[in-house]
Simulated scan of single mutants.
Amino acid sequence: MPPRPYPQPQSGILTAGEHDDLLNPELYAAYVNRSNLGQEIRTMPRVDTTRVVTVKVNDRSGQPIPFADVVVTCSDGNSITMATQADGSVVFFPGLDRLSERITISARKAGRTIADARTVLVSGAAGGQTVGLTANHMAVKATKLDLMLVVDTTGSMGDEIRYLQSEMRSIIASITAKHRDLDIRIGFVFYRDLGDDYVTRTIAFTRDVGAAQGSLAQQYATGGGDYPEAMDQALIRAVGQDWRPDAVKSLLLVADAPPHDELFGRTWQAAEVARAKRIHITPVAASGVADKAEYAMRAMAAATQSRYLFLTDDSGVGNPHAPPAIDCYLVTKLDALVRRVIDSQISGRRIEPEDQEIIRSVGKYDAGKCILPADFKWQNG
């Protein structure tokens, strides 16, 4: 039986930080080397953020063109196509995407070539490279948002699930109020584990915000029993929903545990599908997150041009939160942080917190980047 209902707490209680591993490639490489989890979880490929090819497509006035198909053709004739995000950019990983030393890059929109092809040599040195394409096509801002919340509702989430419900209701209300001209749809995948009363429970995308909030309010935490959960099945369900091709696509993964060891590969396959569909995977790591969960979540966030969010102890809610393996970040209220992240995904520009929103800071933070000490080495760790 579900637990007795309790009064919902107010939003604005939970606190969190965030980190963008694409903006901090040196630190991510050091984290991967230091953790050595890539050796233990061989089905979770290494996302090498130190060698990326970022393609930016702008119109002739310099405005970014969202949702343009960027085609990268290798010297053997094989190609990979990925679409730009709202900021007009798309990131390719030479190792992960198996790019040749010489590649040709072009851009299309609605099947029509909008930018002349460019031939580029992929750098083998540490550090990323950016390739700009100027399109003979006018930029049009995003007018649609598909927001999917994938939420672990096992018993270990019980200490935070009611607070998360309030936070998410506040976030949804704020986004719909701020972007009144935006066509917003909201969906959910709630998940537990094999042997529980359900493994996944899907609420399809809807424009009815009240109905979506009602679905969220009905959820409660129970089940689980062991540490890993059915994250793989939840992500498969989520990425398989009817995402609109002309919408900003945002998936919030709220969880405190990794998938089962033997299912990391299937979890990564779901993340690869999300990347191919241009879906941002934005993890929200709750209390209980340990090494494997953080490793998987950060890899998925980096691969899909998103950020890794994590709850902190500043709120005093829930079990102690393991400190993230991150060198610098700002702590703010969770609801405000998620709003900023989604606003950034919609607008195509990174939005920083106001000074009065900052509860505390860790390390030397500068607009999403950590200021590194002079003696830092790429292979540090």
Rank of each mutant, 00 (worst) to 15 (best):
T134V: 13
T134P: 02
N136L: 13
N136T: 07
N136W: 04
M138E: 11
A139H: 10
A139S: 15
A139N: 06
A139V: 09
A139D: 10
V140R: 11
V140Y: 00
K141S: 14
A142P: 13
A142E: 11
A142F: 03
A142K: 08
A142R: 13
T143V: 02
T143C: 01
K144G: 11
D146I: 14
D146M: 02
M148T: 11
L149E: 09
V150A: 10
V150H: 06
V150Q: 04
V151S: 12
T153S: 09
T153Q: 05
T153H: 03
T153V: 15
T153G: 04
T154W: 00
G155I: 05
S156D: 03
G158F: 01
G158I: 09
E160Q: 15
E160C: 01
I161D: 06
I161L: 15
R162Y: 04
R162I: 04
Y163T: 10
Y163E: 12
Y163K: 03
L164G: 00
Q165C: 03
S166Q: 09
S166P: 03
S166T: 14
S166N: 07
S166M: 11
E167R: 06
R169F: 05
S170Y: 15
I171W: 13
I171P: 01
I171K: 07
I172G: 01
A173P: 00
I175G: 00
I175M: 06
A177L: 02
K178H: 10
K178N: 15
H179Q: 12
H179F: 10
R180S: 14
R180W: 03
D181P: 01
D181N: 15
D181K: 07
L182N: 01
L182T: 13
L182V: 08
D183N: 09
R185M: 06
R185F: 01
I186Y: 11
I186N: 12
I186S: 10
I186V: 15
G187Q: 00
F188L: 05
F188C: 06
F190M: 06
F190W: 11
Y191F: 15
R192N: 11
D193N: 12
G195I: 13
D196E: 05
D196R: 02
D196H: 05
